[in-house]
């Protein structure tokens, strides 16, 4: 019987998403992606670059609950220079999403009609530019039919079909990597660049994933891989870097 929590599996899945990225800026949204990025930086990918969320690159690996005054900063990167990083491609973002479709289109703008939305969300932010300029992954802490939909209402992050339609300007650097959820790990290796299962977390059944997804996922038939266990080193790092267990709040065990 596993002693690891679902949140632990989500964390190592995020760490694996950032593994072998080289010297790029990682921008993780959510506690679990933020912890996963720190795990990757502490193990497989020491050259990763993280920011302080304000205007500087942070030196070393700091706990999620580190105080701003305790951070060592290594360079100054105000927003204006962040766009030069984004447009140069030296970045891997893991954004959240209110909706994702099978081609990896993402919505964080509005639910319903854009002119008169049922629910206003935060806005497109940098998603259109991120997704056509550098590696892009998504983190969905609650995997259900409302998040994984047939068609998103407002395309913010650009999916594989939309990029292809927009032509070479959009596809040249378009690079959808992975979607990590509380149920499993997915990529876009399915037919025509659609979403496919990479692994499901221990304790999750393929049926559960299928019924929580509003479209047909590739790779759910037959043997489905299971998300790997955290290593001993990763287990120690999670305790050290997330002492307040923020990850458990994002993906509760019960």
């Amino acid at each position: 019987m596993s002693t690891f929590t679902r949140a632990d599996y989500c964390t190592v899945a995020c760490a694996d998403t950032f593994a072998l990225s080289g010297e790029v800026m990682v921008s993780p949204f959510g506690s679990i992606p933020a912890l996963g990025a720190r795990l990757a930086k502490s193990t497989s990918s020491p050259d990763l670059v993280l920011t302080d969320g304000e205007a500087a690159l942070v030196h070393g690996v700091n706990p999620l609950n580190a105080r701003s005054s305790d951070l060592m900063r290594e360079a100054y990167v105000p927003y204006k220079s962040i766009f030069s990083v984004v447009w140069s491609g030296r970045r891997h973002v893991m954004m959240m999403a209110s909706q994702v479709d099978r081609f990896g289109n993402q919505n964080i703008s509005a639910i319903g009609d854009h002119d008169h939305p049922k629910a206003q969300l935060v806005g497109v932010r940098g998603a259109p530019g991120n997704s056509v300029n550098h590696a892009t992954s998504y983190w969905i802490p609650v995997h259900n039919n409302r998040a994984f939909v047939d068609h998103v209402d407002v395309i913010c992050g650009v999916g594989n079909d939309s990029a292809a339609q927009a032509g070479a300007g959009a596809t040249r650097f378009h690079d959808l990597r992975r979607v990590v959820t509380n149920l499993g790990v997915f990529d876009f290796s399915g037919p025509d660049g659609t979403m496919a299962v990479v692994s499901i977390h221990p304790g999750v059944s393929p049926d559960e994933v299928a019924s929580a997804t509003g479209f047909v996922l590739a790779g759910l038939e037959g043997d489905v891989a299971v998300t790997r266990d955290p290593t001993e080193q990763e287990t120690a790092l999670m305790a050290e870097l997330d002492p307040k267990n923020f990850r458990e709040k994002e993906v509760p065990s019960s």
Partner: peptide, 22 residues
């Protein structure tokens, strides 16, 4: 010019916003 916006609703929601060939 920018790549940002290509393939997204930024263009379709604001039809006056347009593109240019290289």
């Amino acid at each position: 010019p920018a790549r940002a916006g290509l393939g997204s609703a930024v263009l379709s929601n604001t039809p006056e916003l347009t593109t240019i060939e290289n």
